[in-house]
Design a protein around this nucleic acid. Sequence first.
DNA 1: AGAAGGCTCTTATGTGTACT
DNA 2: AGTACACATAAGAGCCTTCT
Length: 353
Amino acid sequence: MANQNLTNAKRAKKDEFYTQRVDIEKELKHYKDQFRNKIVYCNCDDPFESKFFEYFAANFKELKLKKLISTSYAGSPIAGQMLPFREYEGLKNKKKKEPLKIEINEVKDFNLDGAVSLKDIEYLLKNNANSATPLKGDGDFRSKECIELLKKADIVVTNPPFSLFREYVAQLVEYNKKFLILGNQNAITYKEIFKLIKENKLWLGYDNGGTKWFQVPDDYDIPTESRKKIINGVKYFSMGSIVWFTNLDTTKRHEELILYKKYSPKDYHKYENYEAIEVSRYTDIPKDYDGVMGVPVTFLDKWNPDQFEIVGMAEDNGKGLSGGIWDGRNPHCVVNGSNKFKRIFIRNKKVKK
DNA sequence: AGAAGGCTCTTATGTGTACT
DNA sequence: AGTACACATAAGAGCCTTCT
């Protein structure tokens, strides 16, 4: 049963997922201009494993980055296993799997092989003691030394631990940082996250629907066969509910969603307990309805704030997030006596009342 | 017809809070 | 201190549509 799996997931609190390079490229290609002369920080990461670090190192020149910072976390299960740690000048005589920080200010043909590539990064790390250094603590994003690095950064890009997602986003907002991070689709409905979305301080990126594959530790149990694959002995797990959260501008959120349906009371039911109509799929949003509409959370992937105002969210239990259209009884949206799944309330700004 | 992708749906349960 | 609720939520599943 789905809910049993969700419950298992909740209990496990596993944060051991490695993002694929292809998923990073699919998203990051849309933001190239916004990285020019910027300091990028990838935390909750492992520079020797992370495809985030690899992507920015490989594209340092093309993106015209000013600086790239990456820190690893001691709890990472496969941290530092891939590359021989002690070879790096700044890490000699240090224990393996010790959390570290990497700072890169320039990428050029360091090894004089005629090309600029990741090999130059490796050369730099091996020969410059200042580029890779151990952290004092465990690399937790909440630690003082990591916050100091965060303060220096312009944009944070990473896949943070989902179990600490709210805390992680709160920190980014507190330090007024730009960010592009992965998160669970369910996080949209977290009170704190939804509040930011409603206030237009946070929205979704480009590549949200569909399936993303994440590398997981070998002993990670995947009960569903169709969501598991092993390539060259490396285990991957697929999830269709992982989305990008960002406060970098996107062209997508300025595109208008084309609407086809016309409103009629017979096709759209009014909720019994909210002053709004039920729209079960985003494609069914009527083009001519001037009131409040309840839509699935996946609407957010299509949201253009110039076209739709977000009024609130269902099930707020009187916390003031429903936009004042709730009768205060059943927190779910009720149609014909049955509860609907979580709904976001929107109003079309282009339809005159 | 089968595969892949896009989009919508779930309820058991840990945690916090108000009680006795 | 112990109990009974109320509340918020989960690194997924499953259905339906579109592609090959």
